[in-house]
Computed example of a mutant assay.
Amino acid sequence: MSTFFLAVGLVMALVLGVAGSVALVAGRIVLPWFRDSVSRPGLWGAGALLLAGGLAATRAMPFGGNMPLILVGLSLMTASQFIEEPRRARTGRTRGPRTVRK
């Protein structure tokens, strides 16, 4: 049973590592179920890489040594879904109703 969890953890770490790298480099979320909810792909990518590192280091670190990596990674991934997208640069145009001259 332990070998099964080791294999699943390594596959999850690999998938999260690749998805996090693509999100950091390209600014695009590869996993389809996260595309609509993530407003900051760079933050999500950094969190995914930390989470992947924590999952991959499960067997190499002593008991509980990987928990800070996993918790910080999950925190960054969660924050990327709740922090709003940055505003775009203003063009100088005013928004509002136009006044009609008679």
Rank of each mutant, 00 (worst) to 15 (best):
R90M: 04
V15N: 02
N66M: 10
L31W: 02
I70V: 15
T99K: 14
L71V: 15
L71D: 10
S80N: 07
L74H: 02
A60Q: 08
V11T: 13
G96L: 14
F63V: 10
L24S: 04
F5M: 08
G20N: 02
I83Y: 02
Q81L: 11
L14V: 11
M12P: 00
E84A: 15
G53R: 07
L55R: 05
T78Q: 14
P86M: 07
F5A: 05
F34D: 05
P62F: 12
L49D: 01
L51F: 14
R35A: 06
I70S: 07
V72Q: 01
R88S: 08
S75I: 10
A89R: 07
P68V: 06
P86I: 06
T94F: 09
A52F: 00
R95T: 10
L10E: 05
A79H: 04
M61A: 12
I70A: 10
Q81S: 12
S80L: 06
R98Q: 11
V22G: 01
G73P: 00
S2G: 12
L49H: 01
A13D: 01
S2P: 03
T58L: 05
L69D: 01
R101I: 14
G17N: 09
L43Q: 13
A56H: 04
L6P: 01
G96D: 06
P32N: 12
F4M: 13
A56R: 03
G27I: 12
W44Y: 12
P62Q: 12
G45E: 00
A26Y: 05
R98S: 11
I29M: 06
R28L: 10
G45M: 02
M12C: 08
G17H: 03
T58M: 08
T3L: 11
I29C: 05
V100H: 15
L51D: 03
L6R: 13
E85Q: 13
T3K: 09
K102P: 10
P68F: 04
L43M: 14
G47Q: 06
N66W: 03
T58D: 01
R59C: 02
V18G: 00
M1Y: 11
L14I: 14
I29S: 00
G64T: 08
P86H: 11
K102R: 15
F34N: 09
V25T: 11
W33P: 00
R95V: 07
G47L: 02
R59F: 15
L74A: 14
R28T: 13
T99G: 05
P62T: 13
A89I: 05
A48F: 00
P32I: 11
T94N: 13
A60N: 09
L69P: 00
M77R: 02
P97E: 07
S39G: 10
G54Q: 04
V25M: 09
R95I: 05
R28S: 08
